[in-house]
Design a binder for these strands. Sequence first.
DNA 1: GTCTATAGGGCGATAGAC
DNA 2: GTCTATCGCCCTATAGAC
Lengths: 198, 198
Amino acid sequence: MPRWESDAQGRLERAALQLFETQGFERTSVAQIADAAGLKERSFYRYFPDKREVLFAGNELEAHLVAQVEAADPDLAPLEVLLTALGTAEEIFRPREFLLRRARVIAASPALAERDLIKLADIADALAPALERRGVERGKARFVIDVVLALHRHALPRWLAEPDTTLAELMAQATAELREVIAPPAPTLRRGGRPLAR
Amino acid sequence: MPRWESDAQGRLERAALQLFETQGFERTSVAQIADAAGLKERSFYRYFPDKREVLFAGNELEAHLVAQVEAADPDLAPLEVLLTALGTAEEIFRPREFLLRRARVIAASPALAERDLIKLADIADALAPALERRGVERGKARFVIDVVLALHRHALPRWLAEPDTTLAELMAQATAELREVIAPPAPTLRRGGRPLAR
DNA sequence: GTCTATAGGGCGATAGAC
DNA sequence: GTCTATCGCCCTATAGAC
């Protein structure tokens, strides 16, 4: 039999999520997490550089998106490339139940919310060079990415709420909504009521 | 003569910025900052809840934006309200030199970058209820805000680089750019080259 | 102001697996 | 022998409690 239980990292992650749920992030010590996983505090830091990272290990989403962008048809416009990449990322957001638990814990702690945001920013940083390699100018690449991430932020909660619609479809809906939002106003008509706004 | 030097908070902020510039954020201790400002470490925490906050005190931007949204013509579409609000925020981004120094320090430290992101998110959180009070539905409010923040993120560096154009104008340019990016592709033409993409 | 728990880094020891 | 996961014990600084 093995000298150590296997999957130490997974044990730490599961123990941490549960402890954060019941006690909150701030009132859970690293020693407690390590203990619950059958390890010592010092070993925790072999797997995670700091306490927050225990909820953010793995870059599967980033890896998927970058790979999708690199593999995309060179003729596609950047927006479509990114929409397709995110639309095919459904499996990464599973199981939903886990995602929801994790999201609740993150929302309950400012420290974790900060980390969550920078992880998104890291994804944007990784996507930008991939778009540039397709010939998209640097500033524009970052801009399109930010817009698509806003679309995603809009569509994801709906996908979590109604499992029957595909994420790709909800992203397309969000895009249509954006077209309405930024439709040029008809300035001369403004006094007669808001042009396209609801 | 006064018992204490005045503007303790300002002294701490200036000392911190300079120390972060020369030594980096991580290698600067709170005691060092307090020392340079002629205070004790404990006093630092009377002004800032944690070390990072010393670069993020003051919510003038948030206050300005919320006030602008509340004061805006009720007939304006949400996008225009937010564009106007951000376009009139130029004075808050001054002096540019300070903003640039601060931005460099933030970019150099992941810990500060995290805090910076959540400050933006806080602004979004504050704007959403203000838009809702104008009758914008909750999910859509947050969506429009995210889009406008993406526009701002795109426009601000350009404004910093070329002082002669107004921020409002650059925001309008970014909006026009977004209309191109988001323009519906002409699917049947796709084989003949990218429709509106450059 | 003082005291203290905790975060988190450095370095080396140990003890199996190979 | 080497490699690698784990632990032990050092340390400082942060940040909250008192």
